[in-house]
Amino acid sequence: MLLLPCPHCGLRDEPEFSFGGEPAIRPVPASTVDDATWADYVYLRQNEKGAHREIWCHSGGCGQWFVLTRDTVTHAVIAP
């Protein structure tokens, strides 16, 4: 059970959060990007071993979405 840093509520238990996966930068304006770029944004993620940027929502608390960097090997939060 991780301890995650909510920007409003501080360190809270993992069950209070929802995982949003790896953040993907939405290509805009979408109508101008090619199919491959769009498919990359919608479907493909890096799933890095080690330092991994991911988004979480404090859904059982204040409802805030936030980005953090976590080590997928040790599970340690590297940077909020």
Binding site: P29, S31, D35, W38, A39
Partner: peptide, 12 residues
Amino acid sequence: VDFVGKRSLMTP
């Protein structure tokens, strides 16, 4: 407007 999912409706 570039609504959610629009670009995916323009794929082959």
